[in-house]
């Protein structure tokens, strides 16, 4: 269900700060909604964390709560000191994870 999408530049200048945009399809079920047919509460199920590593080092992370909209969009910045891989991990509160990887070249 959830498939992450990431927009990152393929190339950057050394020392440049670049914007990374990410989106993952996920309902972000708050646990406050009720099933209209049964009247029962739909259990909470959200993406609770996002971590971005660049060249093996953590550069940015986010802890999400239920107030983040469905299909969480997160945009952040990374300082590109040299070429490397940007590795991103999304974690659901069930423990399930999704990953995405983008390489950034310097030149």
């Amino acid at each position: 269900m959830a498939k992450p999408r990431v927009k990152a530049p393929k190339k950057a200048k050394a020392g440049e700060v670049v914007q990374i945009k990410t989106l993952i399809s996920h309902k972000m079920e708050t646990g406050l909604r009720k099933d209209k047919k049964t009247g029962k509460k739909i259990p909470k199920k959200i993406i609770e964390s996002f971590v971005a590593k660049y060249a093996g080092k953590e550069v940015f992370s986010a802890n999400l709560a239920t107030a983040i909209s469905a299909n969480p969009y997160i945009a952040f910045y990374v300082k590109v000191d040299g070429p490397g891989d940007l590795e991103m991990t999304w974690k659901e509160d069930t423990g399930k994870t999704w990953t995405a990887k983008k390489s950034i070249a310097v030149g």
Binding site: V17, V18, T30, L32, Y54, K57, E58, V59, F60, S61, A62, N63, L64, A65, T66, A67, I68, S69, P72, Y73, I74, A75, F76, Y77, V78, K79, D81
Partner: peptide, 28 residues
């Protein structure tokens, strides 16, 4: 979000390698 039933929205954790203390998202 001070008026939401659960006020926490998000925590962004930055490092010096973030380059900019700036982030964007969407909230309820």
């Amino acid at each position: 979000a001070t008026g939401n039933p659960r006020p926490q929205v998000v925590t962004f954790n930055f490092t010096p390698s973030s380059g900019k203390a700036s982030a964007r998202s969407r909230m309820r």
